[in-house]
Amino acid sequence: MGMIVIVVGDSLGCPRSWVGVDLASTYSFQLNRLLGPDAFVANYSVGDNSTDRAVKEPFLRTFVRNSSASYAIIQLGIVDCAPRLLSPVERAIGLVASRVPGLRALFDQYIKVKSRYRYQLTRVFPKTLVPIDRFESNYRRLVLEILESNPVEKVFAINIAYPGEILRKKSYNILANIQKYNAGIARLAAAFPGRLEVVDLFAQCAHKPDWVTQDDGHHIHKPAHDWIAAEIAHRINVGLCAEIIPMFRVGAAESTDNAKVPSEA
């Protein structure tokens, strides 16, 4: 088998056909096409994924360790850093309530009331699913698991996209949260020079707000997928050329040296 690329991501890497992102439009599918028929891009993105989930032993054992990957892509963070409307206890109550018809309707009303005052509640109770310190620790562990158990040339870290207007309006301080967690990703890239590279989706979406979906303010449209695929394919191909060109130069030098050796015939 040729080049293997693994993707560990959240719902931003998944198809969303209702906003024009079908399977063939996802950056993983497009990257596979750009890298050619000998490449295989395994997309392990899943909705509501966080760094907490990505470093759980079953996932690491099944999808990350010894995957024979040459490259890896990580796109995690928005689930970790977005202000949470419900506490872990409330989510547990909601899980129980969802199985009891009468309680489910009551809990749904409770959610509607809280959602109506989401901005105010996330301002007073600024809870995140994964605190920044644990986020960086999880991310570091995931990078190390990828690098130490595979012949990986490089890991690409797609940072968190610039939030759309609706997300900025309904979630207090979301932009600052995203910038803080993206700074954590940048620190990790500095700690793994040449092995972990940031793909700056945040900067692209800040200048191209129409790349972000209007309905929730954090998913991405097809042009963003197009850019991610092209950017990563370019970096991989540049890296491959950097490896191949010196080989050609060595071969050419040897040929020249051989040509200078006088024949003894």
Rank of each mutant, 00 (worst) to 15 (best):
151 P>R: 10
151 P>N: 10
151 P>A: 11
152 V>N: 02
152 V>H: 01
152 V>I: 10
153 E>D: 13
153 E>S: 14
154 K>F: 02
154 K>T: 10
154 K>N: 02
154 K>H: 12
154 K>Y: 03
154 K>I: 00
154 K>Q: 12
155 V>R: 04
155 V>N: 02
156 F>C: 04
156 F>H: 04
158 I>Y: 00
159 N>L: 06
159 N>C: 07
159 N>G: 05
159 N>P: 03
160 I>S: 09
160 I>V: 15
160 I>F: 06
162 Y>K: 01
162 Y>C: 13
162 Y>Q: 04
163 P>R: 06
163 P>Y: 08
164 G>K: 04
164 G>W: 06
164 G>A: 04
164 G>R: 06
165 E>M: 05
165 E>Q: 12
165 E>V: 05
165 E>G: 01
167 L>K: 13
167 L>Q: 13
168 R>A: 08
168 R>S: 04
170 K>W: 02
172 Y>L: 09
173 N>S: 09
175 L>W: 05
175 L>F: 05
175 L>A: 09
175 L>T: 14
175 L>I: 07
175 L>R: 13
175 L>Y: 08
176 A>V: 09
176 A>K: 14
176 A>S: 13
177 N>Q: 14
177 N>S: 13
178 I>G: 07
178 I>H: 09
179 Q>E: 15
179 Q>D: 11
180 K>R: 15
181 Y>P: 05
181 Y>I: 10
181 Y>N: 08
181 Y>S: 07
183 A>S: 14
184 G>Y: 06
185 I>H: 01
186 A>F: 05
186 A>D: 12
186 A>Y: 06
187 R>P: 04
187 R>D: 09
188 L>Y: 09
190 A>T: 09
190 A>M: 08
190 A>N: 10
191 A>W: 04
191 A>E: 15
191 A>G: 06
191 A>F: 04
192 F>R: 03
192 F>A: 05
192 F>N: 03
193 P>F: 03
193 P>M: 02
193 P>V: 03
193 P>G: 01
194 G>E: 04
196 L>G: 01
196 L>W: 03
196 L>E: 01
196 L>C: 02
197 E>S: 12
197 E>D: 12
198 V>Y: 00
199 V>F: 04
199 V>S: 01
201 L>W: 00
201 L>G: 01
201 L>C: 01
201 L>S: 05
202 F>E: 05
203 A>M: 03
204 Q>L: 15
204 Q>Y: 13
204 Q>R: 14
204 Q>T: 10
204 Q>D: 11
205 C>G: 04
206 A>H: 10
206 A>T: 01
206 A>E: 15
206 A>S: 13
208 K>T: 14
208 K>N: 15
208 K>Y: 11
208 K>G: 02
208 K>E: 14
209 P>N: 09
211 W>F: 15
211 W>L: 13
212 V>E: 02
213 T>I: 11
213 T>D: 10
214 Q>I: 09
214 Q>S: 13
214 Q>R: 13
